[in-house]
Nucleic acid binder design. Sequence first.
DNA 1: GTCTATATTAAGATAGAC
DNA 2: GTCTATCTTAATATAGAC
Lengths: 207, 207
Amino acid sequence: MPSPRPRTRIQARNSEAILDAALEVFSQYGFRGATLDQIAEVAGLSKPNLLYYFPSKEAIHIALLSGLMDTWLAPLRALHHDGEPVEEILDYMRRKLEMSRLYPRESRLFANEILQGAPRILDQIEGDLKALVDDKAALITTWIAEGRLAPVDPRHLLFSIWATTQHYADFDIQVHRVLGVEGDAPYAEATRFLTQMYRATLTPQPR
Amino acid sequence: MPSPRPRTRIQARNSEAILDAALEVFSQYGFRGATLDQIAEVAGLSKPNLLYYFPSKEAIHIALLSGLMDTWLAPLRALHHDGEPVEEILDYMRRKLEMSRLYPRESRLFANEILQGAPRILDQIEGDLKALVDDKAALITTWIAEGRLAPVDPRHLLFSIWATTQHYADFDIQVHRVLGVEGDAPYAEATRFLTQMYRATLTPQPR
DNA sequence: GTCTATATTAAGATAGAC
DNA sequence: GTCTATCTTAATATAGAC
């Protein structure tokens, strides 16, 4: 679902600016905590002009969320059966971590939505997301049965990958303050640590 | 820091009810997204009566947060040097997971505060939390040097424990919908999975 | 397409009766 | 201590000029 009427160049540019500003504000304060004044300020437009492009505050929020789930699931969709299982899952984890690094605002928007009870994406969670998880859990179960992966609970494995990777976007500020650093340094360290952890967890033990 | 003037029984009971209702609402919608009307509704009191017990919306929020950090750090403080290292850390992880199960609202309040840039607890993050993490990271480093723990990055290990355990409170609704279950069942499964994962990660490999 | 001005509702907070 | 009524500000949204 694209943003409304992006026909002329100026319309496309302003729609973009509004969605970008809205992502900034919604991802930090949630739907109800965000205000159109803030979004207009960040977008560099007047508040009525915002509502010329989108019919309401909720319409802006929905426009942001509608594309989000697909983007968020893409790394998991790319988990294929043709590679070496441990490395396949490690690649998935690293793709997810890279998403946190490149799109922290999208991660926080998603986190805010879930924290508030997922009122606008519950259907997708019970539909697309659950179906995809069921599918990939079956693949992981197959790998385990073949002895190519240590016997782990596939769904909780996926939860742990989501949790550990999204943590670096959602709890960004805590990570930086506790480490006493700025910038992307934590991501390099996290890649090493998480690779080590999941390799140890997933590598089958011949005994 | 206790809630204000809990002298008589009725005052104590109402203060309790307000804080409990506020926890419910703030943890779901964040500070700005929550309204006094909602809190009053949940508490079963009138809005002016709320403001008889607390001087402002912010005062209620601060009362909730002020005790939260200590509660949240208690499990980590209890990580001692006298046990067997792998089991000590597993115990810590399980204490943290149990906190998520028993106090999901507190976990979400904390998550909301961090997502919004931690405006009211940044000092404690850079102070108490960082100091505690530095202290326990040193302990973990010692264990590693003694060969009693696999060589892992101690701070990212702690981040991963926070992320994986808090996930079951903060993303509660997603976990339940994806698994297609209700109640505490996910916690039992998570305990098994996370115990397995951290044991594999932390057990030193003699080679 | 964009703005100023404004209508309308909701939210935080207070006054004052009981 | 608790309520109704109300003040004030802020927020969503619209009207209408340019």
